[in-house]
């Protein structure tokens, strides 16, 4: 039997600054105007698989239930199709809020265990930082190396198909000015004054 849990929330469990911090990120400004109509959830094709619907993620974020908002699967299932954003009657850019939550979850290392999406995001990030371009084959291998190496066998057929049709190679693509690109990214990530 599933253990019975107490579900009440106390004020002490809220992070009163969380909503303000998220709303301060460019593109997330309209967070406070949500009136919980659920258009976002209904417009989203993936919402049927989410642990919290997008509307609930907005509610959690706005009320400062940071833990729930950052640990949920929803933010990682968002494919950035922007359906919610264009349908929202309050013009809340929900996709951007999902990005903001993902960034925060990675920074605070609280993403759900065994979920390969945040791993992919970080592997992608590293690959691009190193080479300036992404090469699908490399990415897939790195991903399964970090999550479940056995799963790669399930991908073998697809990989062979792609090799056969000339759509995949194991040679990692790269730009020439990788050093400059790294400097660029470091400078943009650094807080003001730290960059040099």
């Amino acid at each position: 039997m599933k253990p019975v849990r107490q579900t009440i929330k106390y004020e002490a469990e809220r992070d009163p600054n969380f909503a303000r911090e998220i709303a301060a990120i460019p593109g997330c400004e309209n967070l406070p105007s949500c009136f919980q109509c659920g258009t976002c959830s209904a417009a989203c094709l993936v919402s049927t698989f989410m642990d919290y619907t997008p509307r609930r993620v907005i509610a959690l974020t706005r009320s400062g239930f940071k833990d729930e908002a950052l640990r949920c699967q929803t933010i990682w299932l968002c494919t950035s199709c922007y359906a919610c954003t264009v349908e929202c009657p309050k013009e809340i850019q929900i996709t951007n809020i999902m990005y903001a939550l993902k960034q925060r979850a990675i920074r605070e290392k609280v993403y759900p265990k065994g979920f390969s999406i945040p791993v992919l995001a970080q592997e992608f990030y590293k690959l691009v930082l190193k080479r300036g371009r992404s090469t699908e084959s490399w990415l897939v291998i790195r991903l399964f190396w970090r999550t479940n190496i056995l799963k790669i066998l399930g991908m073998a057929r697809l990989g062979l198909n792609l090799l056969r049709t000339g759509r995949m190679s194991f040679r990692a693509d790269s730009i020439r000015q990788t050093r400059e690109l790294q400097r660029l990214l470091e400078a943009a990530e650094a807080e003001k004054g730290m960059a040099k």
Binding site: Q36, G38, T39, C40, S41, A42, S47, T48, T53, R55
Partner: peptide
């Protein structure tokens, strides 16, 4: 708030009818 009315059907009971896609926000699912 209804996001969409569509004739894209998924189940036999939806066939030939208009499907309303909405989140039942009080129940918490679409």
């Amino acid at each position: 708030r209804v996001a969409e009315i569509t004739d894209w059907t998924m189940t036999p009971e939806e066939e030939g009818r208009l499907v309303i896609r909405v989140e039942d926000t009080l129940a918490g699912f679409v």
